[in-house]
């Protein structure tokens, strides 16, 4: 008489909760990565101690990034995704003026903590050239030291 042995038992892990969690994580990261501000260039912003600054308004603004270079120098300027050479500050005035006419209310100035003031002053003067009276926001790192 032929005998049939027990078929080797297979242990199946229940994958359903893991897939649920994984999908939740994916949805989270997809949504968060959309929020990342493309106007802001990565740099080391100043972080004064006991800062009394207020949270920067994200609506209706023009962000002017002074891209830093080694030694407190400046590599160029990025305004709303437009890269501008340091020698062409006239373009900055034109772009900021266009954006202000398009409904922007404030100009946010982002500069690295090591950038020398003489460069920043030139940018402020270029922004002043737009002729209106824009409100300038000097952006700092919000994380308290």
């Amino acid at each position: 008489m032929a005998r049939r042995g027990n078929p080797s038992s297979t242990i199946n892990a229940n994958m359903t909760p893991m897939i649920d969690v994984t999908f939740l994580l994916i949805v989270f990261f997809v949504v968060v990565s959309q929020i990342v501000d493309r106007d802001a260039v990565s740099m080391d912003l100043p972080a004064p101690e006991h800062a009394v600054a207020s949270i920067a308004e994200l609506e209706k603004r023009v962000v002017v990034n002074i891209v830093p270079k080694e030694g407190g120098l400046v590599a160029g300027i990025v305004v709303g995704g437009h890269e501008i050479a340091w020698e062409a500050l006239d373009e900055l005035t034109a772009i900021v003026s266009t954006r202000l006419q398009g409904g922007a209310k404030e100009v946010h100035l982002r500069a690295d903590r090591a950038t020398k003031y003489r460069y920043i002053h030139q940018v402020i003067e270029a922004i002043r050239e737009v002729g209106t009276t824009p409100r300038l926001q000097l952006v700092i790192d919000g994380e308290k030291p």
């Binding site: 802001a40 920067a56 300038l136 952006v139 700092i140 919000g142």
Partner: peptide, 13 residues
């Protein structure tokens, strides 16, 4: 994105 704060400064034309 880290939270950013700012100092307002009026810029006379």
């Amino acid at each position: 994105k880290t939270a950013e704060e700012s100092f307002p400064m009026d810029l006379p034309a």
